[in-house]
Design a protein around this nucleic acid. Structure first.
Lengths: 262, 262
DNA sequence: CGTACTCTTGAAACTTCTCAAAATGCGTGG
DNA sequence: CCACGCATTTTGAGAAGTTTCAAGAGTACG
């Protein structure tokens, strides 16, 4: 049986060098950023704001509790009561499900601007862990509900966010169920690249904000296979691995063709 | 490279013996079924109804367009404009994403009572195909929106349905990324079993409403591996394959232990 | 400058896939 | 009602891809 189970402690607590992973600090998040204080990338989710009138943004500020945590910290344990939502404002976060024998599936990564806690369940069904040093804002669900009652568009916005997540979850199912290792890694690199380019310049540098183990558990592979595949992409002059966490895409088109998508 | 690409025509159009697949006809769907005509399993989604006052159920009836189609029919093509939602009332339906070279990932199965079209996208991001003969109801999104405007709970209900789907999508990601073939097939059998037992008696018979190829594409395996795994489960006296589409679970606990979940 | 961790590389093992053929099941026509 | 033909399912053997185990290289930090 194929099992990639390693010492659990190492995976969860690899905090020693975790600080060397570059934290994602967006320069600008959307065009509405103002100099002194950027409302959109601060306490509020961009998606959230867009469905509220300006007059309510102050309320959103008041109900938000700012938090920050060190790299490696478990922000939310699987099964924790879900009475708040969360908006990432700095750093990188991973969502994961764990099997009892230690096998892990990373179901997603969150970067600044991403929102967590769309669902209305009793408990969180996954672990939420900080990969790098993180800043985030908590919103009590009760307060958010109050807001949602007055502004149906907010609820609609939440529904649409859930739908986008569902869509990308199904893409990931295709990746995990039918793609080869090469296709998975290629897809992943382009995916991270595109998410970063939402906010930042348009050079071809992809900054990975997570160690190889997280990538492996996200792609349903082992660390070794991820590493080997990256090496192969480098040898084939598709990418250049400038540092461990910094990859340059030499031929975006070539990488795209390796993803298996069209 | 491992690729399970077979003649596309066979997979999509295997209508010759498709009629031999047992269609799912729920005897009772929830306790609210009345004799003469079961409102809940007819035109309306149970989930939908539960958030509406009785007085509006008539409206729901009026805006619903009943449809039915033969086994093997493509109900909705990937990319089709999404201007309606859909409630399955009879039969079995599969949702699938296709890669350009023919590899397929089945992202879900729909049975009576299941709802389709939660998302508000321009186009459907997957294929919707009838496995067996099917009956379903279409709701125009405009009409549904009108209803949702007056009843915020309906919108909340839709959000919760989307969240449940998201949750099960993440479970499926764990299955596809980290589970062995034996664990996948065991998980699948128990999953179908539990979904059926929502509505029907509590014997240990699982009726599969889809051919092996659909199961394989759902579990990220090949037909042969699914077949071999079922054979192994039979030899180990975990299940009994009474007919191709009818499996008896001899030891539910034994099967549960093979799923890898705790 | 050494230690600890992660990442990379190599070789062997294992699981699953591919290819091929036989068996089974179903619908049709005699 | 039975035989035939077609499609699906099962079974077998070999091949391929990924994992596992193991060791070495690189990097960060005290």
């Amino acid at each position: 049986m194929q099992r990639s189970v390693r010492t659990l402690g190492v995976r969860n607590g690899g905090t020693a060098t975790a600080s060397s992973i570059p934290a994602f600090v967006p320069e600008t998040m959307g065009e509405a950023c103002t100099g002194e204080r950027c409302y959109r990338c601060d306490v509020r989710s961009q998606s959230l704001c867009s469905s509220l009138p300006i007059s309510e943004l102050g309320y959103l500020d008041r109900i938000a509790r700012r938090q920050h945590g060190p790299a490696g910290a478990t922000m939310i344990h699987d099964g924790a009561p879900m009475n708040f939502a969360c908006n990432i404002t700095r750093g990188a976060v991973r969502l994961s499900r764990l099997m009892s024998d230690g096998r892990r599936q990373v179901t997603g990564f969150l970067f600044p601007g991403d929102f967590l806690g769309l669902t209305r369940r009793q408990n969180f069904p996954f672990n939420v862990e900080a990969i790098t040093e993180t800043e985030y804002c908590l919103f009590g669900l009760n307060e958010l509900d109050t807001l949602a009652r007055d502004y149906p568009d907010l609820r609609q916005q939440l529904l649409e966010m859930a739908c986008r997540e569902l869509d990308s979850a199904q893409d990931q199912m295709l990746l995990l169920g039918r793609k080869s290792a090469l296709e998975r890694v290629s897809s992943f690199l382009l995916d991270v690249f595109r998410r970063q380019n939402r906010w930042q310049g348009t050079d071809n540098i992809v900054t990975l904000h997570m160690p190889r183990g997280d990538i492996a558990d996200y792609l349903g592979l082992t660390i070794e296979t991820v590493s080997r595949t990256l090496t192969r992409l480098r040898q084939d002059r598709i990418i250049d691995i400038r540092e461990t966490y910094s990859v340059e895409i030499l031929t975006p088109q070539g990488l795209q063709e390796l993803t298996g998508n069209s």
